[in-house]
Design a protein around this nucleic acid. Sequence first.
DNA 1: TTGTACGCGTTATCAA
DNA 2: TTGATAACGCGTACAA
Lengths: 355, 355
Amino acid sequence: MTRKTRSQPQKPLPRATIKEVAALAGVALGTASRVINKNSRVSLENKAKVNAAIAKLGYKPDMVAQSMRNGESHTVGILVRNITSPVLAGFVRGAQDVLSEQGYTVLLGCSEESREREVNFLMSAASRRIDGLIMITTSEDDPELLSLRQDINIPTILFDREIPESFDALLMAHEQGIRQSLEHLFSLGHRRIALLTGNDNVFPARARLRGYRSFFEARGLPVNEGLISANTFTSEGAFVETSAVLGMAQPPTAIILGGISMLAGSLSAIKARGLRIPEDVSLVASGDSDLAMFATPPISVVRWNNTEVGRTCALLLLERMKGATPAEARRIIVPTEYLIRGSCGPCPSAPLKSQ
Amino acid sequence: MTRKTRSQPQKPLPRATIKEVAALAGVALGTASRVINKNSRVSLENKAKVNAAIAKLGYKPDMVAQSMRNGESHTVGILVRNITSPVLAGFVRGAQDVLSEQGYTVLLGCSEESREREVNFLMSAASRRIDGLIMITTSEDDPELLSLRQDINIPTILFDREIPESFDALLMAHEQGIRQSLEHLFSLGHRRIALLTGNDNVFPARARLRGYRSFFEARGLPVNEGLISANTFTSEGAFVETSAVLGMAQPPTAIILGGISMLAGSLSAIKARGLRIPEDVSLVASGDSDLAMFATPPISVVRWNNTEVGRTCALLLLERMKGATPAEARRIIVPTEYLIRGSCGPCPSAPLKSQ
DNA sequence: TTGTACGCGTTATCAA
DNA sequence: TTGATAACGCGTACAA
């Protein structure tokens, strides 16, 4: 169904230039520029004339020309995996929030796990002379991406990624989060606990695996590698992996999801097998969401404040861009919170002494 | 917890320029430009030399300088209310998808319902010479925004907004969606049905109100204005409004949520009063989501394919930017789908003949 | 304090 | 086919 109405513009209107402002004010171009960039001294009279001309013409400085001149674009790139994840969207919102408040505009890139997209985004962002970059890369060891970043060489903050000795990084304490959830599940009698997370070429997966293994090792218990999957962060993947562990001869009595997009897929798999939460299987997710809060029962989560973390990343970047920071790359670990909800219950079978 | 590692760059590396390419190749600057922009004829020998120089220097054209020269930036602005809503995030993802495929980069703006932010984004985007714009504005009648848009005068696509005789607009068939859900609820015996939606200064609210009223009028039934709220699209607002209608002397037996972010708040309110869905109250939401799918019971929704709609908007914009479209503003209505899930049940009391 | 002129990196025009 | 040069809009060094 289509209806037509009045005309649409094809070409942008020409904007007033500083030259026109100067002409209208009857002063030299340099003078007009000086009143716009307050730093220099101009006679009150000329200042008034220029300001009048600016108002009359609706003059706004052209940032393209300014970039050309300064090298700065007042633009920051944010590269995420998938803007569709509420956790990442919250992150972007927070970062965008403080950046726009400081006069920066955000160039958004979504990799959708594609290296090609990442590289394209970085190239076009660099070619637009972005002043800074916040990245959540798909992997930490893509040589093309790394060398490209090296070439661009602008202030960069990594979120939840660590690339050997190079970048400022803000990392969530996933390791701690996993340990806390394991402690809780242990206290409920669970011993066969699955950890489903993504490929260990990124920090969050490694940290969670570390948390999981160290927990058992600290107690002198063997780590059941069969209960660990480090294959995927996606919802579809979570469906597959959850189905797989639940189909084992001795299925786990609890599952920890080590990825922010995995809950829906895992719930589907559990439902598909006709299992109840927490009577048949306990569940812990990563990253809070409406789904985790309103599921029946509500799902225990290792969570953090996405928006706040986004804000922090932006602030770190701003410091870096101002050059107000020591040259060493910083590595900041932000605590997570383990929140108990109804999805964790006592272990259905009597707890075994060791596994 | 902070740890330091190696050094961070402060200033971007200087990029190779076309001038350096020409010098290294031993040709004139113009010749280098010609081999880069294939259209013109260059001798095979010079072409080879230039290409060698490009490869050696890792030359990439500077888009800022290109913008300066052409006026085009290969950048598109997308302005949304709140990137945190999965529906809007899906929209952005779809749009970004096709735009980046066509060589455009996305400048993202989040208004968070603030007119000031909208205006700021538009100004800075214009000043960066964006080639096109996709907008979901906070209101349809903000004069400042309108005159600003007028000044900028670039190809623009509105999503779910209609501004009198001006812009291409892609509109969802919310009216149809509401009528379908009303039909379903009616068939289940419901007569007291609340509609909670946002302020009618934007299309989706108006369309839903129209759908609601026309449904009753078409059946010769009076419209119970007391069951209509047109105040808010937010989750917090939905909590308040849901609580309000449920607290009425004669509460509705069914509620339709006319906004994509309202479900969580409304569920909270229903739960807070200890009511069961659908035994005590039936519920229909707008826009599909993990929450709607996995709630207990799953929630019936008026839904559409967010990503696909975003893609369509981007395609419309691309056409507009190419000037391949008739000058008349287009107004395209996209169908919605009403999907029945477990949240709608028979009316708890015997259906009354008329209200 | 003000005006002039240059250069940022490109593309396009005009001569050669 | 190629080379030299103007222009895009701005900020600033330099001269007045």
